[in-house]
Write a protein that binds this DNA or RNA. Structure first.
Lengths: 300, 300
DNA sequence: GGTATTGTCGACAATTATTAAAAACAATTG
DNA sequence: CAATTGTTTTTAATAATTGTCGACAATACC
């Protein structure tokens, strides 16, 4: 079979459901009406009717479609639709790359990966092509793909880009009006940071999540599809590396909390210069953490 | 045939060339040696040898490969390799979209486009997938692609992103040492701008190219793959729209030259604040031009 | 016997072919 | 003549095929 007939199967089953609500001898609506009801093309409706006739559930000739018997459970067609969405695939792929420390230059096997992630090879190809815009993967000279990141250069450039994006967000944030939803959100974040700081010895590992929320909040004020697209990838990468580098984790996180709080304070005071300075310091620290995390994984 | 055998054909021809330099009765090197010489796998070498034998150019049995006759021109296999590169495809695609004013929401026909651009449908699919990261195209609900940009929103966000990228570049530029190659480049640009300004009445249409060079020069100081990737697309889009909007073209260009010159002057004076201010003014103008160009094409 | 070379096979990716689905158009019925 | 059905064309998703590569086993030569 060339392409899956899931669409047909689902429509057929729903058509059975419709039949089940009728009485024997009743007539079914016109093809076009059924098509619109099932949200499907007439071609599928006709295939389904054909099948209903073959199963002797209806009598069909010309415009008359008469119900001969009520459908039973056994009439239903099996249908499996546990397909991964594009978003889910992206998360899983990065998860795989980062968690298993796939080294730069590794050849990516489309057939193998499509099995691993349970998506058609086609979809994976497409996904890799889209990732190539981020320089994460690239085509090999004679066909196939290879993992390009995360080299040291990549990490540096990614961090720099992140810094630029986020400082831009900070600048926009301080100019927002009092009614904007960001202010209560920052207030809540401030409280959460203070709570975590008080419990730092036992809960220092919760910081990773808080860090994500903090940066997401700042990024959220920028309504820009390009920035948003990048932020998704950046967030994932930093998130993983943060969790890796276990050295001095408690102290690092405590220091980062302090930097966050300073930034939040400056933001709430609408002090752009101070907010930028504070944010830049934090982002620079973050960049260094990413780099040292790479060194310790000897990927650099 | 499933995939092209261009690789075989080219190798075969080069093998003929090699044979032409030998004498009848000479022996050819081992398969592996030939493979390395032709930069090709042994499989191809063996296919080529097979063909040489079929053409009675060599006698081949086991390890002995004896030249029976010198090859002639007619022995060569025809090979066509006028394939579009990925870069070329990108340029052509954007060219098509922008030049023919393809409206947002248009369904993109992969079969049709692959014919139009002379690339295998596969390659086009991949290209569209990569463009989807820029939000220029998106998948349709039930398969296929559609053109998403250039709506007004898209243009606004693209412009904003461009402004961010370029102001960042300006900040980095003023911090560069005297020995950096950017300074003579700026000097040359300044001269070119002055020349054009003097001749504005006759040469005002040359400004589009100069504008491109100006922004490319500023962008070139940022060594960042992400920024570079975006700049490519941004440059193309702005370039086209600039050429479209014919209203007040001379005056607009003259004004832009003035803005460029002010920016160059500030840059060369290492005055970051002034350079940023001047650059921002110019970029804002540019944004407005793009928007009004959209309006006049009634795509907004 | 050891090394260079060749024969064979499996894996993968690029391309073609096939199929499901949609949409357009023509024919027909009430 | 308007609603409905029959037919054909077009398109995208998937399967199948083929070219290419690399690895390993077998063989020939020293």
């Amino acid at each position: 079979m060339a392409r899956t007939d899931d669409r047909f199967r689902e429509a057929y089953n729903r058509l059975l459901d419709h039949c089940a609500e009728q009485k024997v001898g009743d007539h079914l609506p016109a093809e076009l009406a059924l098509a619109s009801y099932l949200d499907v093309s007439r071609t599928i409706v006709r295939s389904a009717l054909e099948r209903l006739r073959a199963e002797r559930i209806i009598d069909w000739s010309g415009r008359s479609k008469t119900l001969l018997r009520l459908p039973v459970e056994a009439d239903r067609l099996p249908v499996q639709t546990d397909q991964l969405s594009a978003e889910e695939l992206e998360r899983q792929f990065l998860d795989w790359v980062l968690r298993f420390d796939v080294p730069p230059g590794t050849a990516l096997n489309v057939t193998d990966l499509s099995r691993k992630f349970g998506v058609p090879a086609h979809g994976l190809q497409e996904f890799l092509a889209s990732l190539s815009r981020f320089g994460l993967v690239q085509r090999r000279l004679r066909g196939g793909w290879e993992l390009a990141g995360f080299t040291r250069d990549y990490a540096v450039e990614l961090s720099d880009f992140r810094i630029m994006l986020e400082l831009n967000a900070v600048s926009q944030l301080v100019a927002l009006p009092d009614e904007h939803g960001i202010w209560p959100r920052l207030h809540a974040l401030e409280a959460a940071h203070n709570e975590l700081a008080a419990d730092i010895d036992t809960r220092f590992q919760d910081f990773s999540l808080l860090d994500e929320q903090f940066h997401a909040a700042i990024g959220s004020v920028v309504r820009n599809r390009f920035a948003a697209e990048f932020q998704k990838v950046i967030t994932l990468i930093f998130h993983y590396h943060y969790q890796w580098d276990k050295k001095d984790e408690r102290d690092r996180n405590l220091a980062a909390i302090g930097e966050h709080l300073k930034t939040i304070e400056a933001l709430r005071a609408r002090d752009e210069a101070r907010a930028l300075k504070s944010a830049r310091e934090h982002l620079d620290t973050s960049k260094q953490t990413l780099l040292s995390s790479l060194r310790s994984h000897s990927l650099a």
